[in-house]
Design a protein around this nucleic acid. Structure first.
Lengths: 219, 219
DNA sequence: TGACTTTTCAAACACTTGTTTTATACTGCC
DNA sequence: GGCAGTATAAAACAAGTGTTTGAAAAGTCA
């Protein structure tokens, strides 16, 4: 087993993962052929099957790495923010969460890749079902509802999670819809700056959360 | 040109559209072969190219029909609700919108198809770019911000549209996330009933909207 | 009926897919 | 040196893709 890079560029295995990351993200699973990948990784078609045992296995491995990386970046970012001030406000938490949530998805080219990767996987379903829930959703739900209950008004846990869903939904929709709405032929329908949307979501959601804590008025 | 159904089942053209609708929705563009479609439509492979001029054209036509149908159902439903009462409240509008938005996506099998179709298209991008924006987004934005400004507090148009984005984001995320969150091995993380989520979104968003109308406090 | 168009069909075409085979280089070890 | 084990490569494989062809069938209208 050679442990040194060969003539300047990385191991074949790593080159394949890199190429796969980019191509799966941009073109989806079905849209990417093994030959696309091996061409970009500058190796033979057989290499994928040799090193990973098939296209599907390569896909899962590629996605798993991205998923874990994203999760950890978010959690670290939030924990850092939350321990930076004493007695953080609800608005502070929401902004920290929004940034931790969005930052890895928009910074540089890797962010766009991740976002695109997720979008593709959402519909394609080429992953083992539990990978996503166990390795990604649950930890995020855990740490976020925690922060919410720490900074916000007292909330029933289930309602707290629905509030987090409301926020995540807004953020995701903003990310997906922004290029759509902000650059048509006419004047933009909504602000073009992501920061403006974050401010809006924070304001909108802080009020929403507080309303969910208030006793329900008869309707 | 035969204008009568032939021996009991519809014209080939219509049968193809029907099958395409179902298959494109469930398996996406790449995941569906012409042979899949023609097998389900009970006709020859060549029929697709004869009647539609290619797989891509068939896809666009299939999607266009669904899109227009969905848009009209939503708009009709909202207009009906809004003219059913005099001086409707913000909460009333929000609930009407949420129902008009979700109903076509969850009723019976066709709703699920539509939802799945949309999800697939979001990532696949097999449509002419303007079709979606011009025939779908703009009319919806028009009628919804209208209703919002009619029932809610006075809002800057751009802020009104951001509020609508907030609501749509929540609804879409609920729809996508609900099967995920509500049926794991353990106890459900959030309510399993869509109606409970709608109530939450209405409450959450009404407060959010009112907060967006209030003059911004210094932060 | 017979000419004419529209529609259907089986077959073939040219191409891409994921995977496997077979052979060749390279590694470290004795 | 020779001999494992690992890694790469070219070629071939079987299956599936969208599309086209050319002929047969069905339908239309004089």
């Amino acid at each position: 087993m050679a442990s040194e890079p060969k003539n300047g560029h990385a191991e074949t295995q790593e080159r394949i993962l890199h190429a796969a990351e980019r191509l799966f993200a941009m073109q989806g699973y079905d849209g990417t052929s093994i030959r696309d990948i091996t061409a970009e990784a500058d190796c033979n078609v057989a290499a994928v099957n040799y090193h990973f045992g098939g296209k599907d296995k390569l896909y899962v491995e590629t996605f798993r790495r991205l998923l874990v990386d994203l999760r950890d970046r978010r959690i670290v970012s939030m924990r850092r923010d939350m321990s930076a001030v004493s007695d953080p406000s609800l608005e502070y938490f929401l902004e920290s969460f929004a940034n931790a949530f969005l930052e890895p998805l928009v910074d540089g080219s890797r962010g766009r890749l991740l976002l695109s990767f997720f979008a593709n996987e959402m519909t394609g379903n080429h992953l083992p079902k539990d990978l996503f829930l166990d390795e990604f959703i649950r930890p995020m739900v855990q740490v976020t509802t925690e922060g919410l209950q720490q900074t916000g008004p007292p909330l029933d846990p289930m309602i707290a999670r629905m509030c987090m869903m409301s926020i995540v939904g807004q953020l995701l929709h903003t990310l997906k819809g922004l290029p759509f709405f902000s650059n048509p032929k006419g004047p933009p329908l909504v602000p073009t700056e992501l920061g403006d949307h974050i401010k809006h979501v924070v304001r909108f959601s802080a009020a929403g959360i507080r309303a969910c804590a208030a006793p329900m008025e008869a309707s």
